[in-house]
């Protein structure tokens, strides 16, 4: 468990205090994948780096599994960092070392001398990330996705309980992003590792995170389970992120629907209800007709969901509404 108690951070540049993180209260449960989303400068990178104190907090306390990280001395901090893995947007691998030596580095730094022990660990790690044939290559000979896999193997070398991901997929193409995210989800599941990741893409949150916090101007403006925040965004910043992900322009959408007759609804299905034949049943029973204006059926991590914008025409409108609301579906009337 990672706890932030009134943690804040102020930078001093050019004689002026610039707040990077407002006093923040946050709890990240053990074993969950927690996402922090925000635009650049929103403070998410600062928040992430406060966890392993690559950034020193200006105030407040950070507890990791009950241990006050903010109170650690230099030696304690180094031992703590050896239990926290971290991966980076630009991978930050040592170009002068082979893949195997990069992965072995945290082990050597932690004082493990036994060659056979290091070799065995490195081989197992490279096997896990699917790079066992690349051990003797140098990072410059690998693709971006492969480099990030080396980064992941390196971060896992000391068997940490926490993995921090700093925009880990932002430099990768969509396909590679998907495979790296899949690997992270796998690691989270199998090693019961707590993952904290920061990103500016809602899609990354949707694919791997259990819970999410949305950051804006150095503060968390909304947080909760991803299904909740993604399907029912409340803060304007969150709404913008969700729309960006769906590549939809809301004003354009409303213009398009202006000449559509009838009542316009947005239905949100979640979990098992997603695949039930609800619309057909309701239409048959109440005599309303419907047309689907836009929609998306997808998954949020392991939860299937659907979100449809419909126009309802004719029939027993009131009965249809009651029937829909009675089902396990969230109904919003847009017009």
């Amino acid at each position: 468990m990672i706890e932030f108690h009134q943690v804040h951070k102020t930078y001093r540049t050019g004689g002026r205090d610039v707040p990077a993180l407002q006093p923040t209260q946050l709890e990240i449960a053990s074993g969950e994948v927690f996402g922090l989303i925000g635009h650049s400068g929103a403070g998410k990178s600062t928040l992430l780096r406060l966890i392993n104190r690559l950034e020193e907090p200006s105030g407040g306390r950070i507890l990791v599994n009950g241990e006050d990280v903010t109170a650690l001395d230099a030696d304690g901090l180094r031992r703590f960092r050896q239990r926290v893995g971290m991966i980076f947007q630009h991978f930050n691998l040592l170009m002068s070392k082979t893949v195997a030596d990069n992965v072995a580095m945290p082990l050597r730094l932690a004082g493990i001398r036994s060659r056979s022990e290091i070799d065995a660990r490195v081989a197992a790690l490279l096997d896990r990330v699917g790079l066992k044939d690349h051990a003797r290559k140098y990072p410059a000979q690998l693709s971006g996705g492969q480099k990030q896999r080396v980064g992941i193997a390196r971060a896992l070398a000391t068997e940490p309980s926490i993995l921090l991901c700093d925009e880990a997929t932002s430099a990768l193409d969509p396909q590679t992003t998907a495979s790296v995210l899949q690997l992270l989800a796998e690691i989270n599941r199998e090693l019961k590792l707590t993952i904290v990741l920061i990103t500016h893409e809602m899609d990354v949150i949707r694919r791997v995170c259990d819970r999410v916090a949305v950051m804006d101007a150095g503060a968390i403006v909304e947080q909760g389970p991803v299904t909740e925040v993604f399907l029912h965004p409340k803060h304007p910043t969150t709404q913008r992120f969700v729309l960006e992900d769906e590549a939809m322009d809301e004003s354009e959408m409303h213009d398009d629907f202006a000449h559509v007759p009838g009542r316009i609804l947005r239905l949100t299905f979640q979990g098992d209800s997603t695949y039930k034949p609800l619309l057909g049943t309701v239409a048959r029973e109440t005599g309303v007709d419907y047309s689907i204006l836009s929609g998306r059926i997808d998954r949020i991590k392991d939860t299937p969901y659907g979100q449809l914008t419909l126009a309802l025409i004719g029939g027993d409108m009131a009965a249809a509404m009651t029937r829909l609301q009675a089902a396990d579906v969230h109904v919003e009337v847009l017009r």
């Binding site: 960092r81 730094l109 000391t158």
Partner: peptide, 13 residues
């Protein structure tokens, strides 16, 4: 690259 120094710090060096 400063990132390499940061990564090494993050390993507890």
């Amino acid at each position: 690259d400063r990132g390499i120094i940061e990564a090494t710090q993050a390993m507890g060096a």
